[in-house]
C-alpha cells in the first residue's frame, strides 16, 4: 500500500532522470507520512489492539459487569437455554443464557447485614492485616536500611537469602508452614521447647491460629517489600546525608529528617500494596487452618469461596464480591489521593 504512489502519479520530472525521480519521490513520501498516511496507520492500530481488547472485553470487562448483575439474583442452576441468537444466512451464533436466575433485588445485600459469618470474616481479615502489615513493613524497612548501610559486607548474599521466599509457590509454602507449626513435631514447638517453653497448640487455638497466618504471610512477603524499599532508599540523593552530617545530625535524626520524608511515597505505596494483598488473603488460611478453629481465621475471600463453590449461593457470593471489591477500591483510591499530594 505504501508503495503505490511511485508508479502511478509521478511521471513528471524536470529532466527525466529515473534516479533523481526516485529520490524526489522518497522525500515527498517522507513529507507525506505524518499527514496523508495517517488514516492507514490508524487502522493498523486496531489490528494491534483487537486481540487484547477482545479478550479484555470477554474475560475481564464482561465478568465484572456480570458480577454486579448476578449480585441482584439468586442462582438456580446452570442454564442451557439461549439468551439470544443471530442468524444471518451461513452465520449462526447462539449466545447462551449463562445461568438460571431469580431476581431478588437488594435481598443479597440485606442478607449480609445479619450474616454473622460475613462479619466474622471481615473482622478476621482486618485483625490479621492490622497486625501483619505493620510488622512486615517494619521488618522490610529495617532490612532495607541495614542492607543499604555502607559497612555491611556480603550484601548480595543477604539480599538474596532474604528475598528468596518471593519465588515460593503460595500453596507450597503454606503447606510447609502447616507442618512447621504442627503441635506435636513442628519445628517451631521444638525451638520453643529447647528454651523451656511449653508446646503451643498453634492451629487449635484462635489466638495462635491467627498468629500462624500472620507469621506465614510475613515470611512470604517481607523480602518482596524489602526489594521495593531498597530501590527507594537508593534513589535518595547522597548529598542530603552529607549535608545532614555536616550539621552534626545523629543516626536517628538522619533517619527521621532525611530517610523517612524522602522515602514517604515508596513507603506509602508499599503499605497500600500490602494492605490490599493481605485483604485478599485466601490460600494461606485455606491450607493452614481451613478457616478454623471455630472460624477464627476465615477471610473474606475464603468466605466468598465457601458461599460460591461449597454452598452454591453464587448470587450471594457475587454480592459479597461487590462489597469486597468496593473496599479494595476505596483503599486504592486513598492511595492515589495520598500519593498525589507529594
Amino acid at each position: 500500500m505504501s508503495t503505490q504512489h511511485s508508479d502511478e502519479e509521478t511521471p513528471v520530472s524536470s529532466d527525466g532522470d529515473p534516479l533523481r525521480l526516485r529520490l524526489w519521490d522518497r522525500i515527498r513520501f517522507a513529507r507525506q507520512s505524518y499527514t496523508e498516511r495517517m488514516p492507514q496507520i490508524e487502522s493498523i492500530a486496531y489490528v494491534f489492539i483487537s486481540p487484547f481488547f477482545l479478550l479484555f472485553g470477554l474475560f475481564l470487562a464482561f465478568p465484572i459487569v456480570y458480577t454486579v448483575y448476578l449480585s441482584f439474583f439468586e442462582y438456580q442452576s446452570v442454564s442451557s437455554d439461549s439468551l439470544f441468537w443471530i442468524d444471518i444466512g451461513p452465520i449462526f451464533i447462539d449466545v447462551p443464557q449463562i445461568a438460571e436466575l431469580q431476581f431478588v433485588g437488594f435481598g443479597n445485600y440485606a442478607h449480609m447485614a445479619g450474616d454473622s459469618l460475613f462479619w466474622q470474616s471481615m473482622f478476621n481479615t482486618t485483625y490479621i492485616l492490622l497486625i501483619q502489615v505493620p510488622i512486615m513493613i517494619g521488618l522490610a524497612l529495617a532490612l532495607a536500611i541495614a542492607l543499604n548501610a555502607s559497612f555491611v559486607r556480603f550484601k548480595g548474599f543477604f539480599r538474596t537469602a532474604i528475598a528468596i521466599p518471593v519465588s515460593a509457590n503460595i500453596v507450597a509454602y503454606s503447606t510447609v508452614f502447616l507442618l512447621l507449626f504442627n503441635e506435636q513435631f513442628g519445628f517451631i514447638n521444638y525451638l520453643l521447647s529447647s528454651v523451656g517453653v511449653e508446646p503451643i497448640a498453634w492451629l487449635r487455638d484462635e489466638f495462635w491460629a491467627r498468629k500462624t497466618i500472620i507469621a506465614a504471610v510475613t515470611w512470604r512477603w517481607t523480602g518482596y517489600n524489602m526489594i521495593i524499599l531498597l530501590a527507594g532508599l537508593q534513589n535518595i540523593p547522597q548529598q542530603l546525608y552529607e549535608a545532614a552530617e555536616i550539621d552534626g545530625a545523629s543516626r536517628w535524626e538522619k533517619f527521621r529528617y532525611v530517610t523517612l520524608p524522602q522515602l514517604k511515597p515508596v513507603l506509602l505505596f508499599v503499605v497500600v500494596l500490602s494492605t490490599i494483598g493481605t485483604f485478599k488473603l485466601f490460600a494461606e488460611p485455606y491450607v493452614i487452618t481451613d478457616g478454623g478453629p471455630t472460624n477464627a481465621t476465615i477471610t473474606i475471600v475464603q468466605y466468598i469461596y465457601r458461599e460460591a463453590f461449597q454452598n452454591w449461593n453464587l448470587g450471594y457470593a457475587s454480592a459479597l464480591t461487590v462489597v469486597f471489591v468496593a473496599i479494595v477500591s476505596v483503599i486504592s483510591i486513598i492511595q492515589i489521593k495520598i500519593g498525589g499530594d507529594d
Binding site: 474475560f59 475481564l60 465478568p63 456480570y66 446452570v78 442454564s79 463453590f309 464480591t321 477500591s329
Partner: peptide, 24 residues
C-alpha cells in the same frame, strides 16, 4: 479503562468465569 482494572482483585472474576466456562 484498562488501567482502571489494574486495581481490581482477580478473585472478582472467579464466579462469572466459572459460570461462563461451564456454559461453553
Amino acid at each position: 479503562l484498562i488501567l482502571a482494572t489494574l486495581v481490581l482483585p482477580i478473585q472478582l472474576l472467579v464466579i462469572p468465569l466459572f459460570l461462563m466456562m461451564s456454559q461453553i
